[in-house]
């Protein structure tokens, strides 16, 4: 049984996501042309990206920490955070393609936001390729920590800055789109959207913790 003192945030994460599923489907949403009821995807699709960004920020922090004080467990924390982040990034891409297919008519448009997201994912895939190509543990940790710092900055540029600088983007929340940005978000939708983001982040942190523990068990066994 979970211990409340230690595990409260796991339960809270679960409750928040469950709330967002129930409330997200049952509240009344503004009926906007083209998207209509699919506006509810905002609660689920956009949460994936917020969660990915949070996990990548975590990986970034632990990579800096590793460079300041090289400990194996810090390296593990950084890699596992990036792995969970990548997973949520994939979910974001796939759910976004599904949504796009029904609103823009095709799963992929050459939009700066979409291409930026895809590039950010590739940048992180390269991180794992880089890691698997170095055998020496310390060298692997050090080189990949340096790369990860670049990767995080690149991700912010690709999904946060470039799409906003672009002349035109059909993706909401960016330049040239009147439909719906997070700033112009309907107040009732905020009441579902923010808890959803928070809940998913807690779930992601939980998965991250479990991954770290499994990896630590692996390392201990390897040392036997």
């Amino acid at each position: 049984m979970p211990k409340l003192k230690k595990d409260w945030w796991k339960i809270t994460g679960g409750l928040l996501v469950a709330y967002s599923l129930i409330a997200g489907l049952s509240i009344h949403v503004p009926q906007l042309p083209i998207i209509y009821e699919s506006i509810r995807n905002l609660f689920y699709h956009v949460s994936m990206w917020f969660t990915m960004t949070t996990m990548m920020a975590t990986a970034f922090i632990f990579s800096i920490k590793y460079l300041r004080q090289p400990l194996a467990k810090t390296d593990t924390a950084a890699v596992q955070a990036a792995a969970v982040g990548l997973f949520f990034g994939f979910l974001g891409i796939v759910t976004g393609m599904m949504w796009a297919n029904f609103t823009w008519g095709k799963p992929w448009t050459n939009d700066p936001q979409l291409n930026g997201a895809a590039t950010a994912i590739l940048v992180y895939l390269a991180y794992f390729v880089l890691r698997s190509s170095i055998d020496d543990q310390e060298k692997k940790a050090r080189v990949s920590a340096v790369y990860n710092i670049f990767a995080f900055v690149l991700m912010l540029v690709f999904i946060g800055i470039m799409p906003r600088l672009a002349e035109h983007s059909i993706h909401p929340g960016k330049s040239g789109n009147p439909a719906l940005g997070v700033k112009g978000l309907d107040p009732t939708m905020r009441l579902v959207f923010y808890p959803a983001v928070l809940g998913w982040i807690m779930i992601a942190f939980w998965i991250w913790k479990i991954r770290i523990r499994i990896k630590t068990i692996h390392q201990k066994i390897a040392e036997l």
Binding site: K10, A18, L21, I22, I210
Partner: peptide, 21 residues
């Protein structure tokens, strides 16, 4: 009904995660 099904699936996943923990 759909909300119920989706919530049930999520609860299932949540309990599974708890179990893994």
């Amino acid at each position: 009904v759909v909300i119920g099904v989706i919530t049930l699936i999520f609860i299932g996943l949540f309990v599974y995660l708890l179990f893994l923990d």
